[in-house]
Simulated scan of single mutants.
Amino acid sequence: MSNTNSASHLPRIGVLGAGHVGSAMGRVASEAGYPVTIAGSGDPAKIALITKILIPGAQADWPAKVAADADIVILAIPLHKFRSFDPSLVAGKVVVDLMNYWAPIDGTQQLFEDPRHGSSEIVQQHLSGARVVKSFNHAGYHELEADRRPAGAADRLALGVAGDDRKAVEMVAALVENIGYDAVLLDGLHEGRILEPGGPVFGASLNKEQFAQVLTEKTAA
């Protein structure tokens, strides 16, 4: 979904995680006009060629450099690696949590077993110096690319955006809109639970009105 804004006026996106999800996110952000850097778990030379092929215009770099240079950090690492993730890498940053905790897939991760909190709330607790926003996680990476539509299109879908820092939420909402979706702002990071596996919008293809209806029904329940 192309964007008419100059890349120099858009926030720099740093993707941590070069798997299917991270690569798809880097690709759609780059195609929307955002400058993008991406890191895998080690030497960027290992992913330089695949980055050039799969994410044209993006650059591969070391994780610390990707995070340091980014205005928005996309956290797309395997969930089981999060416990060892260094919080200082993203201190002061807007961090978009794309990770999902799904015990049947990931195995039981005790860190995310606290029923009082959604998974992104737990991520925020561990990344206390960052401003965590939950979004994009409830769409499959294939659909994330295929379902993009221009603003005003009759079949444009919606993505939820949940966070406690208003400015961070607005930055991520703009990213959602520029990529090709309508952004639906939720009432705080705790509301991000509806975006998680088992939640009412996870994996669902909803337009903005349908998404709003789900929120209304949840509030009324």
Results as ranks from 00 to 15, higher is better:
76 A>K: 01
22 G>A: 06
48 A>L: 00
137 N>G: 03
22 G>H: 06
165 D>T: 09
92 G>A: 06
40 G>D: 06
9 H>F: 07
99 M>F: 07
169 V>R: 05
210 Q>S: 10
97 D>H: 10
90 V>D: 10
138 H>E: 04
219 T>E: 14
6 S>T: 08
206 L>M: 12
58 A>I: 00
19 G>Y: 12
51 T>R: 09
207 N>E: 09
74 I>A: 08
161 V>F: 06
178 N>M: 08
10 L>V: 03
7 A>G: 15
185 L>E: 14
187 D>N: 13
205 S>D: 14
81 K>M: 14
98 L>V: 06
69 D>I: 00
24 A>D: 01
134 K>L: 11
205 S>F: 13
176 V>G: 06
77 I>T: 13
218 K>H: 04
114 D>Y: 11
86 D>S: 14
119 S>D: 05
89 L>C: 10
167 K>W: 00
121 E>S: 10
128 S>L: 08
5 N>V: 07
84 S>C: 00
182 D>Y: 01
56 P>G: 01
187 D>F: 00
95 V>H: 04
214 V>E: 05
212 A>I: 02
99 M>H: 05
218 K>M: 06
40 G>Q: 04
60 A>Y: 02
151 A>W: 12
104 P>V: 07
27 R>A: 12
156 R>E: 10
20 H>V: 12
160 G>H: 09
148 R>L: 14
142 H>Q: 15
